[in-house]
């Protein structure tokens, strides 16, 4: 397996702590952009970026439409917009209907990333109280990308990782503390 060209992460209830945990232990040279949807209900993700960025090994920014997603940088979907990736690795936004009651929706990000990166993509579903991300993870697996799901019993809210496992299954189902080490291994070049 070659090192991934992109990493996508989805989380909801309890997601901020989970993201913080993963990003504080990530190697700073993952060699891929990291795109994340974290449902917060707030329009403004600046604070979220700052909170997570404070302990992250890589810079954390709000995703800006039309900009390229650079390696070793985390991009958080802005509130109220779906985040998508285009061929060539630039980011785009949409205000299409909510998916699984959410906008941004994890499914939308995951499906577009799966189309662009195919088997060179890692998708991670973590804690959350709904079922967003399951459909997206399924698409990632159909395109032979790698699916990581946080162990539902380990998650602050188990519904989302459980829904992902039920629909898509996973290549790795691990507790939160093992996600960063796993990613670090997958990203070894």
């Amino acid at each position: 397996m070659s090192a991934p060209r992109a990493i996508v992460i989805g989380c909801s209830a309890g997601g901020m702590r989970a993201l913080k945990e993963v990003l504080s232990k990530l190697r700073s040279d993952v060699g891929a952009p990291i795109l994340a949807v974290c449902h917060t209900g707030s329009e403004d993700v600046t604070t979220l970026c700052e909170l997570i960025g404070a302990s992250s090994t890589v810079p954390v920014r709000e995703a800006r439409e039309r900009c390229r997603a650079h390696d070793n940088t985390v991009y958080i979907a802005p509130g109220g917009y779906h985040l998508l990736v285009e061929y060539g690795g630039r980011m785009s936004l949409s205000v299409d209907e909510r998916v699984a009651f959410a906008r941004p929706a994890i499914d939308v990000l995951f499906e577009s990333a799966a189309d662009v990166y195919g088997h060179e993509l890692v998708g991670i579903v973590m804690t959350g109280a709904n079922h967003d991300g399951a459909q997206g993870l399924l698409r990632i697996r159909q395109r032979r990308g790698i699916a990581i799901v946080q162990e539902p019993l380990d998650a602050e809210a188990s519904a989302m990782p459980q829904a992902a496992l039920d629909l898509a299954g996973a290549d790795h189902c691990v507790p939160l503390r093992d996600i960063a080490p796993l990613l670090n291994r997958l990203c070894e070049r």
């Binding site: 998508l84 990736v85 061929y87 785009s92």
Partner: peptide, 9 residues
């Protein structure tokens, strides 16, 4: 149109 969202639609 931007391909990713057009495709979804």
């Amino acid at each position: 149109y931007a391909p990713a969202s057009f495709r979804r639609r």
